[in-house]
Amino acid sequence: MATLSINNVRKQYGSVEVLKGIDLDLTDGEFLVLLGPSGCGKSTLLNMIAGLETISAGEIRIDQRVVNEVHPKDRDIAMVFQSYALYPNMTVARNIGFSLEMRGQAKAEREGAIRRVARLLQIEHLLDRKPAQLSGGQRQRVAMGRALVRDPKVFLFDEPLSNLDAKLRVDMRTEIKKLHQRLGTTVVYVTHDQIEAMTLASRIAIMKEGVVQQFAPPQEVYERPANMYVASFIGSPTMNFVRGTLSAEGDRLGVSVGRERSGFLPLFQAPEQAGHWLGQEVILGIRPEAITCYDPAIAAGNPALVKVACGVNVLEPTGADTITYVELNGHEVVARIKPSDRVAEGATADFMIDMARANLFDPKTEQRI
């Protein structure tokens, strides 16, 4: 295991700045996911940690050792690529052990390490096969085995599951999670898939245009996003954003929404600085699962639940939930309701909003208030 520190790291290609001052610190055994759309700089950052890209400015430390000028083979890292990068003419066993062979490790030790890793990944029966005889999931396990056999300080994964079909991707995601729990090795994992990020990471760094927008545990990113970009990138369906005015009724602060700002939604726990926004426009952020069909028994025991009447526009059954598009005081928002809570398209029904899960954003900067 190892710590990893990334301090004010920048990358430029000519006049184009790809990474604009990245700061991340990982403790021993952490699982960091770099998440963002194509072109945000996440793979460039991973390659810089690996030593495959030079650093324009800043510093990368592995176990307190500055590695800016250290050759990739001397960084004690192992990388798993999207393309697997297996040698087609070698057996699985030789693919896994080739790096040990190149280092001159004794054959008996090498074979012991290969068997240990193959047992861990449950591919002992594949050791005599060649890559062409393997499925995509099996090839990915071999690629992981080749990294594991070296027992590195840091594992680097570059979108390792993107070439797999949906079911296999879920299965392999679970295997990677189990593997990390068993080994406890520090991991940096690049993906554009938010589900992978949420399920695997101990902390997520969400990137946009070479800047880290938020660096936090998955649940914090989901429930308390730093800005509207993070809020919209994480979650499917995405967070609802409703423009309104921060107002007061008696001693309660809330958001008035609607064409005439008539619908008052009281905030259950207003942020400390909310009082400075009184009378000003804000953006209310609500996750779809915080908007559900009204249940008087549940609402009676929870003061954070606010009853609202909404027109039902569209229903999208997904099996476990029904995604429901409703009209809230002139704004279309998405609710997530149970299939047993039957509502009819075109009807008006009572819903409840959990205002304890509300977020407020500055409409100009899009930062969380």
Rank of each mutant, 00 (worst) to 15 (best):
I6M: 13
V9T: 10
Y13E: 04
G14H: 06
K20W: 07
I22Q: 00
I22R: 01
D23Q: 03
D23P: 05
F31D: 05
L35W: 05
S38L: 09
C40K: 01
C40T: 00
G41P: 07
G41H: 07
L46Y: 07
N47G: 12
N47P: 03
A50K: 02
S56G: 06
S56K: 09
D63K: 09
Q64A: 13
H71F: 02
D74M: 01
R75P: 14
R75V: 02
I77L: 06
I77W: 02
M79S: 03
V80Q: 00
F81N: 05
S83K: 14
A85C: 04
N95W: 06
I96R: 00
S99G: 11
E101H: 08
E109W: 12
A113Y: 05
R115Y: 07
R116Y: 01
A118R: 04
R119W: 00
L120H: 04
E124Y: 10
A132K: 15
Q133M: 13
L134D: 05
L134Q: 08
G136E: 06
Q140F: 13
R141H: 11
R141D: 00
M144S: 01
V154D: 03
F157T: 03
P160G: 13
L168E: 06
V170F: 10
V170R: 06
R173H: 10
T174I: 13
T174F: 06
E175W: 14
I176D: 03
K177C: 06
L179Q: 12
R182K: 14
T185D: 08
T191S: 12
D193M: 12
A197T: 08
A197N: 07
E209G: 07
G210I: 00
V211K: 14
P218Q: 12
E220I: 09
V221T: 14
V221L: 15
Y229P: 08
Y229R: 11
V230S: 14
S236G: 09
T238L: 08
M239K: 03
V242I: 15
G244H: 09
T245A: 07
L246I: 08
E260T: 09
R261P: 07
L267Y: 15
Q269R: 08
E272V: 12
E272F: 07
Q273C: 00
A274I: 10
L278M: 10
Q280A: 14
G285T: 02
P288V: 05
E289C: 08
T292L: 05
D295L: 10
K307D: 00
G311L: 03
V314T: 14
V314E: 04
G319R: 12
T322L: 04
T322E: 08
I323N: 04
T324S: 10
T324E: 10
Y325W: 05
E327D: 15
L328S: 07
N329Q: 13
I337N: 09
R342N: 05
E345M: 08
G346P: 12
A347W: 02
M352H: 14
I353H: 05
R357I: 01
F361H: 10
P363N: 02
T365S: 15
T365H: 09
E366I: 02
